[in-house]
Design a protein around this nucleic acid. Structure first.
Lengths: 195, 195
DNA sequence: CACCGATAGTGATGTAGGTCACACGATCGC
DNA sequence: GCGATCGTGTGACCTACATCACTATCGGTG
């Protein structure tokens, strides 16, 4: 059994413990609602049009969530490296159909938590509700900063910012996906790092 | 005493009630932590560099939060119309200094809630923590959608999207501020609606 | 009432980045 | 071991938008 499977519980626990105090019993209860899952490289977890039931906590590998136009152009909303979370949150929170894809950049191991279980856990354990509030607060602030970055930085500055914020991505993620995250063409990105 | 002052409590209560069930006693307790405040047109509520203690629930008027470059270029992160919330959330959540401004587009009436009181209320009343989690979830999803809009729509499409999403803004907010929200120059915006 | 600041329209010109086309090396499946 | 596919670089050209400069209008205030 691979390391991340054996350690799934420890990985999630130390992730939670950074912000939230749960007793061992509370954490055991929390953890019992997660379902481990393996995906192959390139496998799609959420398709547009799907009913979205789960969010995914990444143990190993790397996911991306993205929107795709009719012409096949891809815009990446988020990468998800180990200890990050991913889903189509608009669909998950509103109970609507997915408008984005979530798929695997590399083979990945995740823990799945259903929206129903998340809400149940939040109702039952106040500290868990705190954790999810805190987590979204972080995501919200990060999204605002990325918006600002779109508004007042050019492609090169945004590229350098991404490398600075997420150096792990550089070795794992093909450049054309970085370009799709930055909102520029791969050709433009390729021209940024030479002159 | 103006209407929004008399009705402040009712406005906040009906805002909360859309998502969260609070007993009258719980709501009274919640409301007792808010401090009413009036601002004049053009007045600044948060300056960059400030320690940020409060977030603001708008009863009447219109606020904007924005980042300003050294050369004076302005990028608007958010407008806040009645029943919307505003602050420098990065500073508020992290306890760091403000990097953005918050000021009044028109004379405004707000209710101020300190971060310390928010956290206290969230600890004491589970339903209040639910409310704030829910609120940030919405904000997060909205920010993601705006990010996508930046990536795959041009200026005209973003303009039409804003008018569709926030028709109230059209009558209240000068076009150059809409431009600063869209991330285009006021000249470009002006050229969009004629050819 | 006359002036001023804020807001908005418009022309001329520059440029970052998109698009299309093609070439090249690295991987991967058979 | 070989062809197909993927990721990447690069050249030629085009377009959406920025910038600067000027003008016009309007609401408020001495």
């Amino acid at each position: 059994m691979p390391a991340f499977r054996m350690n799934a519980k420890a990985i999630l626990q130390s992730h939670i413990a950074k912000t939230t105090s749960l007793s061992d019993d509370e954490f055991d209860y929390f953890f019992s609602h997660f379902k481990p899952q393996s995906y192959k490289k390139g496998q799609t977890i959420i398709f547009p049009g799907d009913a979205v039931e789960y969010e995914y906590f990444v143990l190993d590998g790397c996911l991306k969530s993205f929107y795709q136009t009719d012409q096949g152009k891809m815009f990446i909303l988020q990468f998800a490296m180990p200890t990050w979370w991913a889903s189509d949150y608009e669909a998950l929170y509103n109970g609507t159909r997915a408008t984005t894809h979530v798929d695997c950049i590399t083979a990945s191991e995740v823990l799945c938590l259903s929206s129903a279980d998340r809400e149940k856990l939040c109702r039952e354990v106040h500290a868990i509700e705190f954790f999810f509030r805190w987590r979204t607060n972080r995501g919200y602030v990060a999204a605002q900063k990325r918006l600002l970055s779109f508004m007042h930085h050019d492609a090169r500055q945004r590229y350098e910012e991404v490398l600075r914020l997420y150096p792990q991505l550089y070795n794992v993620v093909p450049k054309q996906l970085i370009a799709a995250y930055l909102g520029v063409s791969r050709e433009t990105l390729s021209r940024l790092y030479q002159p």
